[in-house]
Structure formats: C-alpha cells, structure tokens
Design a binder for these strands. Structure first.
Lengths: 330, 330
DNA sequence: AATATGTATGTAATTGATTACATTAATTAT
DNA sequence: ATAATTAATGTAATCAATTACATACATATT
C-alpha cells in the first residue's frame, strides 16, 4: 500500500506537491503534474481517507438513524437521502436502531467520536435536553418524526390533516362505524393522526367510540390481531383507518379471513403508500407521503448545516396525497 | 472538544497514561486511573476515532454491498450481519448499489481508501480479476450470489436443488404446464434456479416448452407483466415458478386480474420467503432461505478474515426449505 | 549493601495526509 | 542591470491518537 511519500519519491517531488495535485488546490506546472499522476498510477496509489479526515476534521459521512430498513416506508426516503449525499461527496451510514434507545445512542454518539459529520433522525427516543446538547455541536435534522421541543430543523407532512383526509374519505363513502388501529409509542405522527381521525369523525357528526381505537405496534401482525378483535365486537366497524400500510394490510387479511368481502363489507385505509400497497389484493387506499423528496430535502438541510450555510431552525412541511384504490372503492 | 492532551493536562499525567486507561492495555495504579477517569468525565472527552483508526490502521467498519434495501429479502440478512458485527465492535456501512457497476465500484474502493476493513458482497458485476486483486489485499466474502471463478469465501443455499423442490411440488400437485419467470442477469442463482426447474420437469416426464420461460427483472411489475403474457398464450400454464417472491406476487396479481381463482385455476411458487409472502392474499408458497443465519455466517467469516484467523477459502451451503401456503394448495 | 527485577509512568516517534510558511526560480518593472 | 513581483515547489508543523523505548522508583535477591 503506497502512501503519499512513496508517490512523492517516485515522482521526484515533495509530498506537498503530490497533495496539490491530489486536491488541485494550487497550480502545479503540467510537467510535474504529469509525473505525479503517473507515479500515482504506477504505484496504484489511493489516498488514505482516514489521514485526510483527521487532518481536515471532517469525515464526509453522515448518519441516518431509522428503526429498521425492513419497513419499506423508509427505503424511498433513504434513496432520496443517498442521492443527495452522494451528489455532494458524502457517504451515508444507515443505522438500524430497532427503536432501541441504547442502540440509538450508540449510533448517535459516533458524532462525538468524530466518525460522522452530522445525522438525520427518522425516529428516536432521545430526551430533548440530550438532543439539544448534541444539536448545538453537530448538525442534526429530524425527518418524518420529531421532538417538537427541540430547535432542530425538521421535515414532515401535516399528519393531522392527512389523517383527517383519510377518514373523511371513509365518511363520504357513507361509513358511520370507523375503527382506528394505532400504535403505542410517543411518535408525534401517531398522536397527530389520532387527532385527525377524531376531528374527521366529529366534523361528520359521528360520535367517537373509544372501543374503536386499538393500539399495537406498526407491524402487520399487530394489524391482523387488532382488526380481528375489532371485527369480533358485537357491532363491528365497517371501515378501518390504520396508521401504517403494514397494519392496514394486516387488517385486510383479518377481514378476508373472517369472510368479509372488500370493500363492500369492510373498507380500509392505510398510511405511507409503501410499494406493497399497490401490489396487494385488494390494492390499498392510503396516504402517500412524498418519501423521496422528504429524503432529499432532509439531506439537503443537513448538508447545509454541515457546511455552515444554514444554521437557523427550519420547519418544512411537504404535501401529502390521498390515493384511492380497491380497499375502499370498487 | 477536548482531546487526549487536555485530559492528560487536567489529570496531571502524560498522554500515554491516558491512552493506557482508555485501552486498559498496561496496568495503571488505581489512583492515577481515577484521576484520568474523572478528567475524562469533567471534560466530556471522547476519543477521536479517526486518529485512533489512522494509528491502528483499521476502521472497525465493514461494507455490505447490496442492490437495494427496498427488497425485503435483504433486511433479515442485514440484521444477521449487523448483530454479529456489533457483537464484535464493528459497524456496518450498508451500500445500496442499485446494481449499478459504477456505484458498486465506488463503494468497494472505499477499501482502498482505508475507510473499511472488509466487505460482504450480496451481488455484484465485478470482473473476476478485479475481485481477486482486491480480495488478495482485503477480506471479502460473497453472500447469496457469487462469482464462482474467484477464490473468495462464499455462503449460499443450493439454488438448483431448491428450485427443483419448488417445481417438484407443482408437478406432484398434478401440474403439467408450468411456466417460469426469471430475470435477465448474470447471477449464479438465476442460472441455477433455471437448471433446477428444467431438471424437475424432466424428472416428471414433462417436455420443456421454451415459450414458458420468460425474462424480466426481479421486481413485482416484471412479474405482473410476464405472467399477463404467459396467461395470454393460447394454451397458458396452470402453474408458475418465479425466481423471487416479488415476481410471484406480481404473477398472482396478474392471474387475479384475469379472473383466475388461486390456487385452483392457477398456482404459484415464489422464492425467498420475504415477510410479505405470508401477508399476501393468497399467502405465497415459496422457498425459504435461512436469511438471518446467512447474514450471521457471512459476517463471522468476514470478521475472521479481518482478524487473520481464517484465510482459507470457504464455501458454505446452508439449508433451504419449501414453505407451502395458499398459492398452491387450499 | 549492592545488584537484579519489576512496575508505573513519561518522552518522543509514528500513522498519512494537509497546509502555513519558507525558499527558489522565473518574469516583469524600473 | 537590478530590484520587485509572481509562480512553483519544498520544509516542517499539525491533526489526535497509539506505542516503542527510556527512565525512575520500589521491591526482591544475594
């Protein structure tokens, strides 16, 4: 493994000149430049980025913390983030936290160890104080989920309004008995979606039945279980609003297993528009978040923070969309 | 940001002693040790891993190259890899290559830049020579897919046998007209699965109809399109073997759209047993690969390679399993 | 008491780059 | 022809750690 000294020796120049050619920082006469370049080629030299990073006090690496890449919701977002990062010479380190606070912390502390220049949080259980402290030293942006007590930049959709629109779609179809399956977590989106659900019911003149709201986690199994329970009620709901597509799909599967026909006997709306939703039979009505764009914007914001271009807190809200498919209308 | 010098100064010792406490390499008397420890706490000191890595000539980082995390097939594998890596103090850098040779190369060359200690390849278009050259310097293991001309370690299932079993399942159910949807790529698994398909037909005394094998990519849309074509044949197949679950699901959707009833009019077998397969309606019959274990074993092999414990080429074949669900039998 | 051994700690080299500052050579101005 | 300016390149400090080697002191051995 050749280093910059070897290249300098072979080219008959100093390491400074090699470095200049490497970074074309100052002008080097074509002759020397060529000699350096061919020495590089001959020795198959690649700069040691660890050394460069140490000297430059930067890593060109950013962290992206998310619960799990297994949830397809994240993959488009991540793609957006990666595209922007790569375009700017940054690499992305995807961190699966499994929503485990200990793991979250381990990853985020890589900032302290100077292994990354900044981080995007896609969901986290960090305390406000801790986040603010780290955020005062390193750029951190929150994407989709956020702790509203921090002054960190964030990017999301209007979850309350989106949920309202989803439930309104059901009430307009004539549904009066609408269940909701939600999650027991302290995500801001969860609370807001529940709020939107309630407002939509209220605006449609439907009394809220607390027994119609069930709690699990974000997953398919949870949706299957909770919906099975809802459908076992004496007077079960005719429609369902789920806070994730995975849960909605679980709900539909439960209804199918009970012999319901969809959407005639039972309608369902999900949230996220993961790729799977359109593949499912019946295809799922859902709220689409501009996932790719969210990823792009979040990363752009982060990189601006890193370069010092943008230091003010920004709160960006992107547009969502109701996508109507077979799970609510024929 | 305090550095080791600051800690040494505050504790009234030399940097060497601080380093000793940090790595508890040599014994330090409890008194000094405590002074160092409290200086570290007081200054909120965190070692700069870039400097450490430069000095130690290691990064405690490994690359995992895969086409895309959007394919849920990879998520369990990645989980296994991460678990093993973390247990050994390594971090994983997930690299979405989108099967783009240029991106693949960019990522793998991070090895040359000393930003990672080794790599797992989950699919790649690298030339044998290039791979061998890099592999002679850095530990590289191949997982699931592999270039059989290299002497790199690899871990996979027996794809030929697995495909055989899948198709045999269909012939045993009485199917005589079995289509296959495959992909145009040069993955070894693709070739082997096709081989298994052909052998199973042959063993069942069924003549191969070349028009029954269609090629697309690994995805859902491809499966939908190709199966629509197959079902439009004058004498369409009554069953389908797809080289991925995503394709199989596309195939089922196509059949449903054509009004077929599954599995009575049309049966389908997939490959991979992604989480989605059991959620789908109908649930998908498929070949299950021990994804988590494959990830674990691949990472263990890689880490052994990095530590120099294991330098011989290893070829590990793990067991697969046919999982029978609603898409082939009621 | 003199010597040998061992333990705790310090000094300074090292890792591989970047870069401030110094030097040299070439060009331009007078 | 000489001084001033500019351009190209070199020297050595720097980043923040680890670690080989040196040193000082305490304890053990004879």
């Amino acid at each position: 493994m050749a280093n910059i000294q070897d290249v300098a020796a072979l080219a008959g120049v100093s390491v400074a000149t090699v470095s200049r050619v490497l970074n074309n920082s100052t002008s080097v006469v074509p002759g020397t430049r060529d000699r350096v370049l061919s020495a590089i080629r001959e020795l198959n030299y690649n700069p040691n980025l660890t050394a460069r990073n140490l000297r430059r006090a930067q890593t060109k690496m950013v962290l992206v913390l998310l619960p799990t890449v297994a949830n397809p919701f994240y993959s488009r977002i991540v793609k957006g983030m990666e595209d922007i990062a790569h375009k700017n010479g940054y690499n992305v380190m995807l961190c699966n936290t499994n929503s485990d606070p200990a793991r979250e912390k381990v990853y985020l502390e890589l900032l302290k160890n100077r292994l990354a220049d900044g981080a995007v949080l896609m969901s986290s259980d960090f305390e406000t104080e801790y986040l603010m402290e780290l955020g005062s030293i390193w750029p951190i942006v929150q994407c989709c989920e956020y702790n509203e007590n921090t002054t960190l930049s964030r990017i999301s959709i209007n979850n309350e309004q989106a949920a309202y629109k989803a439930v309104e779609h059901l009430t307009k179809l004539g549904h009066k008995r609408i269940g909701m399956i939600s999650a027991k977590n302290n995500f801001i989106s969860t609370a807001l979606r529940e709020k939107g659900y309630k407002r939509a019911l209220s605006d449609a003149g439907i009394a809220l039945d607390p027994g119609f709201i069930m709690y699990g986690d974000y997953g398919y199994k949870s949706g299957l279980r909770l919906t099975t329970q809802l459908l076992s009620l004496e007077n079960p709901p005719s429609a369902l609003f789920a806070i994730s597509d995975m849960m909605a799909i679980g709900g539909i599967k439960a209804a199918i297993q009970k012999g319901f026909s969809i959407p005639d006997d039972f309608a369902a709306v999900g949230f996220d528009n993961i790729s799977f939703s359109s593949m499912y039979s019946p295809a799922l009505t859902t709220i689409s978040q501009p996932k790719y764009d969210m990823g792009c914007v979040a990363m752009e914001l982060l990189l601006k923070g890193i370069s010092g271009e943008e230091t003010m807190q920004k709160t960006i809200v992107l547009e969502h969309e109701l996508i109507i498919r077979e799970s609510t209308v024929n």
